[in-house]
Nucleic acid binder design. Structure first.
Length: 293
DNA sequence: ACTGTCACCTGAGGGC
DNA sequence: TGCCCTCAGGTGACAG
């Protein structure tokens, strides 16, 4: 499910109940998600104060007073809910209204802020890991991540440098988290459409022979900025799983111009083309052949 | 080093 | 109603 705007929406929902609060009780209700939990996973969380909640690419990172960082990834179907604990329950016991998919409630936190936080992930492609902050640089999951698309260092020149010489498609390059970290299938399709660039275009065409950014690269970076910022404002996109932590839906899916719109009319003013779909590197690509070149 | 494919897992939706 | 197929906001582990 979640790409950068959805993860950022989740971060903003969790921040008020996590930051400055203590984890009174943590529980992992199965031995693994995508990876096995570390043997000391719960022990390193229990009793810790969360000093900050940040995001890197599609990862949430909770800083703990101990010097550890809790790294969380939502995979395809992960979501967090913030709920009020049941005061009738025994202290330390998680007792809350169970929805029909509560079998997929895998990780629970009781916070001193008076909130219970529930991580639900039916497909279990998500994962959590506790890492010492001074070892973050060597963390394999984070090493090699490219620039934040909304950060200062990501601009047309940088994108052109990373794409120079690449023989693969623009679509595949933008999905590559080493090139830019945080985009996924939806926002790559949308950014390519907004910049009128074909997903099939060879990535190297974003750079001149000297490695300078082309106008295409500048347009693409502008479109990435716009689409991500607009999506964050909308609370992300809710197709199936994504909910804000309050349970509310995001609403950026109403602003899709191509994603999930196969056979419908292109929304570029004056274009009149028809949105097509094909498979690229095993993922669906949606695009308008008339206005994306 | 680069690029592409597969695997991981569950649930929803469509066709019959 | 049920069964069987395809598809899904990701990405690590491989093969070539």
């Amino acid at each position: 499910m979640p790409e950068l705007p959805e993860v950022e929406t989740v971060r903003r929902g969790l921040q008020p109940v996590m930051e400055g609060a203590r984890i009174l009780n943590a529980e992992a209700r199965r031995a693994d998600l995508r990876f096995p939990f570390q043997p000391d996973f719960v022990a390193r969380l229990q009793g810790q104060i969360v000093t900050g909640l940040g995001r890197r690419a599609k990862y949430l990172m909770a800083d703990l007073a101990s010097g550890d960082v809790l790294l969380m990834h939502l995979g395809m179907s992960g979501s967090f809910r913030v709920i009020k604990p049941d005061n009738e329950a025994a202290p330390g016991e998680f007792h809350y209204p169970r929805g029909k998919d509560s079998t997929h409630d895998h990780v629970l936190f009781r916070m001193s802020s008076g909130a219970d936080i529930v991580f639900n992930d039916p497909r279990r492609f998500g994962y959590m890991k506790v890492i010492a902050r001074n070892a973050l640089d060597e963390e394999p999951l984070l090493r090699g991540l490219g620039p934040e698309p909304l950060g200062n260092e990501f601009d047309a020149a940088m994108l052109a440098r990373s794409c120079a010489g690449k023989t693969t498609s623009l679509k595949a390059s933008l999905l590559d988290q080493r090139v830019v970290a945080g985009l996924g299938n939806i926002y790559v399709c949308e950014a390519l459409h907004r910049s009128h660039l074909s997903p099939r275009r060879i990535a190297a065409t974003l750079a001149t022979k000297k490695g300078e950014p082309t106008d295409h690269a500048k347009r693409l970076v502008g479109a990435i900025h716009t689409v991500l910022n607009d999506a964050i404002k909308a609370g992300g996109s809710s197709l199936r799983d994504h909910r804000q932590t309050s349970g509310e839906l995001g609403y950026f899916q109403h602003s899709f111009k191509v994603y999930d719109r196969e056979g419908e009319t292109c929304k570029t003013p004056g274009c009149g083309g028809t949105v097509k779909r094909f498979t690229q590197n095993g993922r669906s690509t949606f695009w308008c052949p008339k206005c994306q070149k």
